[in-house]
Nucleic acid binder design. Sequence first.
DNA 1: TCCATGTTTCTAGATTATTGGAAATATAAA
DNA 2: TTTATATTTCCAATAATCTAGAAACATGGA
Lengths: 114, 114
Amino acid sequence: METRAALTALAGLAHDTRLALFRLLVPAGHDGLAAGNLGAQLKLPPATLSFHLKELRHAGLVSQRRQGRAIYYAADYAVMDALIAYLTENCCQGAACEPAQSAPRTRKTRDRHV
Amino acid sequence: METRAALTALAGLAHDTRLALFRLLVPAGHDGLAAGNLGAQLKLPPATLSFHLKELRHAGLVSQRRQGRAIYYAADYAVMDALIAYLTENCCQGAACEPAQSAPRTRKTRDRHV
DNA sequence: TCCATGTTTCTAGATTATTGGAAATATAAA
DNA sequence: TTTATATTTCCAATAATCTAGAAACATGGA
């Protein structure tokens, strides 16, 4: 993941409504949850909900799928994983970051599936 | 790490200049770099530099230490590590996030030193 | 003491993000 | 068709963040 994309993903998560939305989607798995369901859980007016879901989508953190009248959103784990890899590699370099761990994860180890 | 702190750390990193500052500090280790050094590398006016360093400091991502006339900033690896742990646990749950990996990291495994 | 250097704080304007009502769009069901 | 439901887009107001000049502060050296 490049710095530009990492920045976009960070900005996507750096808002309490969006982080809450994303955290609701994480355990919902690949099927995700309908927009209405998310809005009801967080008590958000529809326009506000839609605004934040769009931000998450532009950050590549969630995907969208229509099913009947409902639109389902699902977490994109690959982008999240790439962000974690980016932070580990670029912001947590060397042994300093994980003193109790055997070895820091490297790009090669983590990026196989990205 | 709690959601509120994670949000603060995410917002701290979610800006061009601040991510660049933090990335300069990461390889600089515990000694860190002088504010002036950082400002010169990124060509920032002093007030702008100071503004962003303050943000990073409030997010707990960097520490400050005066030495003579210079003020040295250093990355706080513990907070960064805690953020990565938070994202791994809360935003990357289950096997979904690391399909090519043996087992997802758990809170117990990662939090020993935090 | 006086001056130079490194950095911060003050401040105000500029930019960008967020909010939510109202209208528009898409789908499904009667 | 018509109506109901789910959601988005439009838009204007508000809020938050960012920028950088100028002034202030702290330290060290002459």
